[in-house]
Design a protein around this nucleic acid. Structure first.
Length: 140
DNA sequence: GCCAACGTTGGC
DNA sequence: GCCAACGTTGGC
């Protein structure tokens, strides 16, 4: 199983809204970046991801699971290359892991979140996943 | 094919 | 609100 990080501006799409969708989940639409799209195409059903709030909060606030693999983005122009997966909320974190906390941990210095903060969908290494889960107070 | 200009994102 | 980083666009 692979691990990922989904970044969202809480004003646009928040963790609470994701939770409200329940087991049905919600399509992760609106991504208009090829790197991010490629990562979504690599995702498999059952993969796990962090739900990260950018801008005002800058913290990992929940855990999601990929429930449907990449399909054309219904919010994109017809025949455009954009795709998206569907994710559902699994559980909130016991305590949010802020960007500052991540930056303070040397083992997490190589996270894409630190290296390329603008990428909205990112891969997470298994070791990084375990450590951030520990910091968040959730089971990996 | 290069590069300057511009728009967008996100941290601070 | 500002600015740095990055991606995209368009002129040449």
């Amino acid at each position: 199983m692979a691990y990922w990080l989904f970044k969202s501006e809480p004003a646009t799409w928040s963790w609470d809204q994701q939770v409200a969708k329940g087991v049905a989940g919600e399509i992760w639409n609106g991504v208009r970046n090829h790197q991010a799209k490629n990562f979504m195409q690599a995702m498999k059903k059952g993969d796990r991801g962090f739900f990260y709030h950018s801008q005002t909060e800058r913290a990992v606030v929940g855990i999601v699971e990929v429930t449907k693999e990449a399909e054309p983005d219904p919010t994109a122009e017809p025949d455009s290359p954009w795709e998206c997966v569907t994710v559902k909320a699994i559980q909130p974190v016991a305590s949010p892991v802020t960007l500052k906390m991540i930056k303070d941990v040397p083992e997490l210095a190589e996270m894409v979140l630190v290296k390329n903060s603008r990428l909205s969908v990112q891969p997470v290494e298994p070791d990084e996943w375990k450590l951030v889960c520990k910091m968040a107070g959730v089971k990996p």
